[in-house]
């Protein structure tokens, strides 16, 4: 029972501190970790974007490769007219990749908190629907619910709720599953053995899930825009 108790303790999303306003607003640890990730990314951006040259030097080549990869990846899916959404999708990709990798440093990843993934999924579905409205206009957008035939309308409306739910649960479940397995392993064998598993659950699975999240979002957007 000792292991179960310890595991339950790890699973709770903790509050790191409380803002003494309106009788205390609790700030959960996922928010503080997110602030940390934001800070690091901001500083890195400011450092790397200074002194850009026509003939790039070494750090600029790496930067251009990453940005070029992100742009090519999304342009392939969204097409030319979807270029305006790339900055948001790229930001989510970088944020998710960073937050899934925090498990490597012994920090609980923010994506282990259901609230974080739910917020990201809601933002995604709003963007998906907005992209549909933007490219088709209001009338065309509402008409698209009755496609390919009128009989499909309830299913199309149901999709509005299923898509964010599945996006949110997929990310949350994967990260939580990896987290539970890693914690169990660490409780049983504290040394050496967890290392290869950490490579799989923290690095490979985290990056794949970040990729899948933005990939599915952009795929749904492309479907709405057509």
């Amino acid at each position: 029972m000792d292991i179960a108790g310890k595991l339950m303790e790890e699973l709770e999303s903790k509050t790191s501190f409380t803002i003494p306003l309106f009788g205390g607003i609790p700030v959960s640890s996922s928010v503080t970790v997110t602030w940390g990730i934001m800070l690091i990314l901001m500083i890195l951006t400011l450092i790397f974007v200074r002194n850009l040259k026509m003939v790039p030097d070494k750090p600029q080549i790496v930067l251009e490769t990453i940005v070029g990869f992100i742009y090519n990846f999304f342009t392939d899916i969204l097409g030319e007219h979807g270029k305006r959404y790339i900055p948001y999708l790229g930001t989510v990709l970088i944020y998710l990749a960073c937050s899934n990798l925090t498990g490597l440093f012994g920090i609980t990843p923010p994506t282990k908190d259901l609230n974080v993934t739910a917020a990201l999924a809601i933002m995604s579905i709003i963007l998906i629907e907005y992209s549909g409205i933007h490219s088709k206009g209001g009338k065309g957008y509402f008409k698209s619910f009755a496609e390919p035939m009128v009989l499909m309308t309830p299913i199309n409306i149901l999709e509005l709720f299923i898509r964010p739910l599945s996006l949110c649960m997929r990310l949350f479940g994967n990260i939580l599953g990896g987290f539970v397995v890693m914690e169990l392993l660490k409780l049983i064998v504290p040394a050496v053995i967890p290392v290869p598993f950490s490579f799989y659950f923290d690095i490979f699975d985290g990056l794949i899930q970040a990729y899948v999240f933005v990939f599915l979002t952009s795929l749904f957007m492309q479907e709405k825009m057509e």
Binding site: S166, M169, R170, F172, G173, N174, G177, I208, Y211, V212, F215, L216, L219
Partner: peptide, 17 residues
């Protein structure tokens, strides 16, 4: 393949949740 795997894996994740 990645898209298919992500969709197939979702069922397992639902069971886990």
């Amino acid at each position: 393949l990645l898209l298919g795997c992500a969709l197939a894996e979702a069922t397992a994740i639902y069971g886990f949740v």
